[in-house]
Design a binder for these strands. Structure first.
Lengths: 333, 333
DNA sequence: CTGTTAGCGCGTTCAA
DNA sequence: TTGAACGCGCTAACAG
């Protein structure tokens, strides 16, 4: 029942363990006949190299860690899928950790993972960048995703948040909305501030002065979106449209509007950020700015692999584009 | 920059590596003064045991693998969260694999993971149970989740699918619907067949003979739900209600109804299975049968730990209850 | 091109 | 109670 070792295979094939190792890793060239015998023996015994031993020897693992800040957010899980697909293809397994946007939790995870000889990290960093810096100092391959870590040179994968927010807001302006509100995330996160900046830029470009009263910082979660929307509804004169800068807060905002029997888009036009599966079948269908989520994950994985293969390459930032899907929720009557 | 080893700590504390090991694992009793010195040295050096070496020596890992069949399904990701929370608390890391409902892919993963010395498996098994059986034969701790693996004794965590389906269907009957259709999953999956069975049982209990024409087997995904719904709409006389047995297919069914301008619940009443974040704010709010998803994960993790601690305990099946949330989508006019 | 040897870092014998 | 020595399974040196 015990798994066969490389010695079993060697004995079975009448060669030395080193030769088996060479055949299995294809590092060095081995005589065709021997190679054949080794492969046959391995096959026959159902041999699989013990990755613990292999990794101890190589002092690295075939593990990648993805540390995201909200496992309940489909944006992050979709992204992880992109990472996994690339990672699997390259022989890596992926472990997923949920920092919950908590720098201490993030620090704990990273410290533990550091000891686990994890070979690569993909992190959506919390505001505190020391954690990430510590990883880099320890010489680990690191890619930041979704947010730009401040003051530290590391491979990074982002979307053009400012552009996406500008698209969304300009679309609302075009439709004829004038008092456009914005619900964005915590100011300390680059995603939140960039999207807010894009929103403001689009307004200015249309000759509208951004009104601070119409801007709300919430928590990127459903509850926060709900509260911010409720808050905005109390303003007089009321906003006639709202741009919500992530998926979960959009759920909350829509829930709030429904609870208050406010008609979309008649009373308030809505554009959300991120894709949601129900965008097309709710009534009215929801206008969204979508991120290439899966592609973000793939890109991060690719960058990570490049970093692992060449630790000295200059850090790179990949910026992907968002797409505006204009639907009925933002149609001006 | 290299991480300190147990030898470094030993030298620093003026003891032997064996003593350090003993202190750190608390197996054997060590003189208090020495223990103190060792702890101080470890602390000071920032020592973390190399889990590769430790695990090679112990020939096990601190890794759990969760093999689910659809990573795009929030049901599974929520479940994984429950597993992770318990696992982390016990010192395990969790790797996530996506079998995509493909027995071959499942087999590949499990074979690979077997070689990785993974200490515990939580699997939502595809129809083919040999894969699971192989794991058990190899003496690994295994818990099946969501589906009942046929012909193999293994710890299992389920919900009472039949009960949940009966609840949903009985509720529709109570509301006055009479031609109630059911869109369920692939017949080979116990979840799909149990839910179908519960649906039929509820109809019979109400004196309605189940009509095979109103039963559809789809793929538990959005597209399949859409197609099945379209299919049902062509039937004459048309169904006046539909029970959809998972979240993704419910999205598809609702999308189909919206595309055809069919009013819910006026023309067709709808009850879905699984919770969805948008259930309450779409119009009409969606009636659902929800599973205690997170709790399912926690339960599986707890069972897994028990199995690891005592490989000889008799296999156990935990069955959790569903909850019916009756909302406007199933209100008879 | 192949075999022998050593050691990755740890936990666990066995003596003392 | 403590330390010395060994080996988990593998791969990278080094010889041959």
């Amino acid at each position: 029942m015990a798994m066969p070792t490389i010695y079993d295979v060697a004995r079975h094939a009448g060669v030395s363990p080193a030769t088996v190792s060479r055949v299995l890793n294809g590092r060095s060239t081995v005589d065709a006949a021997l190679r054949e015998r080794v492969n046959a023996a391995a096959q026959q015994l159902g041999y699989r190299p013990n990755s613990l031993a292999r990794n101890l020897r190589r002092s690295t693992t075939n593990l990648w860690a993805v540390v995201i800040s909200d496992i309940n957010n489909p944006f992050f899980t979709a992204l992880v899928r992109g990472v996994e697909d690339v990672g699997q293809g390259l022989g890596y397994s992926v472990v997923l950790c949920n920092s919950d946007e908590n720098p201490d939790k993030e620090a704990d995870y990273l410290r533990a993972l550091l000891a686990d000889q994890i070979s690569g990290f993909i992190v959506s960093p919390t505001s505190r960048t020391e954690n990430l810096a510590a990883l880099c100092d320890a010489g680990r391959a690191v890619v930041a995703i979704d947010r730009r870590p401040r003051g530290i040179a590391v491979d990074t994968v982002l979307v053009d948040n400012e552009h996406g927010a500008r698209q969304a807001t300009a679309h609302l302006v075009e439709q004829g909305f004038r008092r456009i509100a914005c619900i964005t995330g915590p100011a300390r996160l680059s995603t939140a501030s960039r999207r807010l900046r894009g929103y403001r830029a689009a307004l200015r470009a249309a000759g509208i002065t951004p009104d601070p009263e119409l801007e709300r910082h919430a928590d990127f979660r459903q509850r926060g979106g709900y509260a911010a929307m409720a808050d905005l509804l109390a303003i007089r004169p009321a906003p006639d449209a709202v741009f919500v800068t992530n998926n979960l807060m959009t759920v909350g905002a829509l829930e709030c509007l429904a609870d208050n029997d406010i008609r979309v888009p008649d009373t308030i036009g809505v554009v959300g950020f991120d894709d949601v599966p129900w965008a097309t079948f709710i009534r009215p269908p929801l206008s969204t700015v979508t991120q290439p989520t899966y592609e973000l994950g793939r890109t991060a994985a690719t960058l990570l692999k490049a970093r692992i293969d060449d630790p000295d390459r200059p850090p790179e930032t990949a910026t992907l584009r968002t797409t505006l899907h204009a639907r009925a929720s933002s149609r001006h009557q």
